[in-house]
């Protein structure tokens, strides 16, 4: 049972990847990329969990209380920002592709090959 949180992260990554490989819609593909990325949140938070720990904010708990690992939380925050901005940038590319080619199907984009 103790493996489950870690395995969930791996599963989310692969499911997102599967969605991207088989995608027929670019918005969906970028969404799947975000799904794959959320696996990193799950893994990092699972790694940082401490049994019986609370949030690492000492404003309203006594110093010395058991808290979960704050480092992974900081990393996840950075990761969230990175993910959100990359998604926004990729979606702006998708908008322009739709406008220029009239399609969102990645299989229909055949301008670059060989």
């Amino acid at each position: 049972m103790t493996l489950l949180p870690f395995l969930a992260a791996g599963w989310i990554f692969l499911v997102g990847l599967y969605g991207m490989v088989t995608s027929r819609n670019l918005v969906h593909a970028v969404g799947c990329l975000a799904v794959a990325q959320s696996s990193t949140y799950v893994l990092l938070l699972a790694v940082g969990y401490r049994r019986g720990g609370t949030a690492p904010v000492f404003a309203d708990i006594p110093v010395g209380s058991t808290v979960v690992d704050p480092v992974v939380q900081a990393l996840v925050l950075t990761d969230v920002v990175v993910g959100a901005t990359v998604t926004a940038l990729l979606l702006s590319l998708v908008i322009q592709i739709r406008k220029r080619t009239g399609t969102l199907d990645p299989e229909a984009l055949t301008g670059l090959k060989g």
Binding site: G10, M20, L33, V86, L93, V94, I97, R100, T101, L109
Partner: peptide, 25 residues
């Protein structure tokens, strides 16, 4: 104004970002 740069940039972005998330794992 041209669809090919957009297509190339999207492929570039998606493939590289996915690999970067793998690195984070």
């Amino acid at each position: 104004e041209d669809s090919r740069p957009l297509h190339g940039a999207l492929t570039f972005g998606v493939v590289n970002s996915l690999a970067a998330y793998g690195t984070l794992l």
